[in-house]
Simulated scan of single mutants.
Amino acid sequence: MTESDKVFAGSIPKFYDTLMVPLIFEAYAADIAELVAGFSPGSVLETAAGSGVVTRALAPRLGAGARYVVTDLNQPMLDYAATRQGSDSRIEWRQADALALPFEDASFDVVCCQFGAMFFPDRVAGYAEARRVLRPGGRFVFNAWDRIEENAFADDVTNAVAAVFPHDPPRFLARTPHGYHDVALIREELGRAGFAVIEIETREKVSRAGSARDVATAYCQGTPLRNEIEARDAGLLQLATDRATEAIASRHGEGPVAGKIQAHVIVAASP
């Protein structure tokens, strides 16, 4: 992962939330919310909350007296998430690094993290922090994308943008969001962090959008892929988006489009 992989600033939060979230994140956020709520937690910590899609799905399912701390490393994303949530006295918004959590040991019943682990520069350290702040018997609930070839639109966009920059293809999507797909490695790293009981389920879903243009704009302008494109030639952002649009339309048709997405959903129990 490069430093630019972690930059969600400028117009990215809005594009991310309005286009990427309904495209690929809402369905898996519903999974996370259902799993977490099923444990009837009195206190929940969310890390790498992004624009708040899990927060919006989970908050209505928590008890009236629950404590819900929502964190993200990127303040612009956290600010955007807070504006989308509305007033809820149970929620505390706090900028925090998942690898150095500013909370006492055994503070939470559940820690959850949607598609954030692949951004951790040291995943074992991040997992160890989650275990540290969990009470005995607490759960760490998170997910990670499967390999890019199992995620149609991300693969299409990556290949199309690579054709625009053949000598230095932007690889953000394959490198980071889809770069942590090895289930054996996930288990091994969780084990090194002190988790012993680990359940992993691979779930396939369908990603839908109103048009190929919406998909291309979401990926090219609503993720750090945009940073990679602009670092090479900011004047080619629109061309890259156009090429991605053409690639998706040629494979998935004109008008509304649908493509396979696939991710691993993990529940690790604290000893």
Rank of each mutant, 00 (worst) to 15 (best):
A193S: 05
Y180V: 00
Q114G: 15
A212L: 07
G86L: 01
Y80I: 15
A244L: 09
G191T: 10
N159V: 12
D17L: 15
L73D: 03
M20C: 13
A106K: 13
K205F: 07
D182T: 12
Y16N: 00
A209Y: 05
A249Q: 15
D79L: 11
Y80R: 00
F15A: 10
D5K: 12
Y180P: 04
F115Q: 10
A128F: 06
S89G: 05
T217K: 14
R208P: 02
I248F: 04
G42T: 05
P76I: 10
A162W: 04
E46L: 10
T55Q: 01
F8N: 01
L225Q: 08
R123M: 01
D122T: 05
G116V: 08
L45S: 04
S51D: 06
T158N: 06
L239W: 03
Y80M: 13
T176W: 11
M1A: 09
V7L: 15
F195E: 03
E246P: 02
V110R: 00
V197A: 14
P166G: 15
S207L: 12
G116C: 04
D5W: 11
F25R: 01
I200E: 04
W93P: 08
A209H: 10
A100R: 13
G191S: 09
A193Y: 00
P271W: 05
A240F: 02
E3R: 13
D168F: 00
S89V: 08
L58N: 10
V36Q: 00
I32Y: 04
D155Q: 15
G42E: 11
A209G: 06
R232E: 01
G255Y: 03
T2N: 10
V197S: 14
A100F: 01
I91C: 07
P76E: 15
R94V: 01
F153A: 06
I12Y: 10
V197M: 11
G126E: 09
L237D: 02
L190I: 07
D168P: 02
N151H: 14
A128K: 15
R94P: 02
L58V: 12
K205I: 06
V21F: 08
V69F: 02
C112Y: 12
R147K: 13
F119V: 00
R56S: 03
E104D: 05
Y80H: 14
S107Y: 00
F165S: 04
D122Q: 01
E230F: 07
Y219C: 04
T158L: 10
I198W: 10
M118V: 15
E149N: 05
G253W: 02
A81Y: 03
D5F: 07
A209T: 10
M1E: 15
A240S: 13
A100S: 09
A231P: 04
A37G: 06
F195Q: 04
L101P: 06
E204S: 12
V21M: 07
T245K: 07
P170Q: 08
E189S: 11
V70W: 01
W93T: 13
D233E: 12
L23D: 06
E230Y: 07
A57L: 07
R203M: 12
M118K: 02
P13M: 04
D5G: 07
T158A: 14
A98D: 12
A263C: 09
H167G: 01
R131H: 13
L78K: 03
S270P: 09
Q75E: 14
V206W: 07
